[in-house]
């Protein structure tokens, strides 16, 4: 009769003998050997040829360029780099961008006529010469050149002339562009003097203006 200790020893010895002979393999060892079989060795990898590259068809190339062009800003360095050869769809787009822009058209918006021509009558010419003479006298500082009686005659004549024109419906700016050369103080001094000369008060002028269109 054998002891239980002796039987366990014989079982372990038999297991070890199986492993040695390859009849029985532990699970971890099985997985390792499977991996080794699937993976080529370094030598094999270096000698193995990669599958041959197939050139894309012209249609595929065109589709690729179109897709690229869609995301690239035209006339940029990137777009210029994309244009490899003429005839590609992108080259056509780029050519359209590079083409000279059509000349803009001239559109006449408004035509502003020249100011109305001045009709020079002999009397107007004389009046202009007199005005220039008076201005020259003021510039020289010699105010005595045009004596008061002459000024009175001129102012009276001009008052009548302007009023006659206004009554005839020919209203115009009394100073015109020359208003730029007459000081507001000068105007107030002259207006006040004119009112005083004919014994009018400022409120009477106000009433006149409120009643009439003057």
């Amino acid at each position: 009769m054998s002891s239980p200790k002796a039987s366990t020893r014989t079982k372990a010895a038999a297991k070890a003998a199986d492993v040695k002979s390859g009849a029985r393999k532990p699970v971890a060892a099985k997985a390792k050997s499977a991996k080794a079989a699937a993976k080529p060795s370094l030598k094999e990898a270096s000698t193995k040829k990669a599958p041959a590259q197939v050139d894309p068809s012209p249609a595929q190339k065109a589709a690729f360029l179109k897709a690229m062009a869609a995301g690239v800003k035209l006339d940029s360095a990137a777009s210029r780099a994309l244009v490899k050869k003429k005839g590609s769809p992108f080259a056509a787009t780029q050519e359209a961008v590079n083409a000279p822009a059509p000349a803009p058209k001239v559109e006449v918006l408004r035509r502003i006529p020249a100011p109305a021509a001045i009709i020079d009558t002999p009397e107007s010419k004389t009046a202009l010469a007199l005005a220039a003479l008076i201005e020259k006298a003021i510039d020289s500082g010699d105010l005595g050149k045009v004596q008061p009686h002459a000024q009175q005659a001129l102012v009276a004549a001009l008052c009548k002339l302007y009023a006659a024109h206004a009554e005839a419906g020919e209203r115009f700016n009394i100073l015109g562009q020359r208003s730029a050369t007459v000081a507001a103080t000068d105007v107030m001094v002259v207006c006040g003097a004119l009112l005083k000369a004919v014994d009018l008060q400022v409120f009477e002028l106000g009433m006149w203006q409120s009643w009439s269109s003057g």
């Binding site: 001239v106 559109e107 006449v108 035509r111 502003i112 020249a114």
Partner: peptide, 15 residues
């Protein structure tokens, strides 16, 4: 184009 006359034109975006 008379002397003293003006023209306002538009060329592209310029007035």
């Amino acid at each position: 184009f008379k002397d003293g006359e003006r023209q306002i034109i538009r060329i592209g975006e310029d007035e």
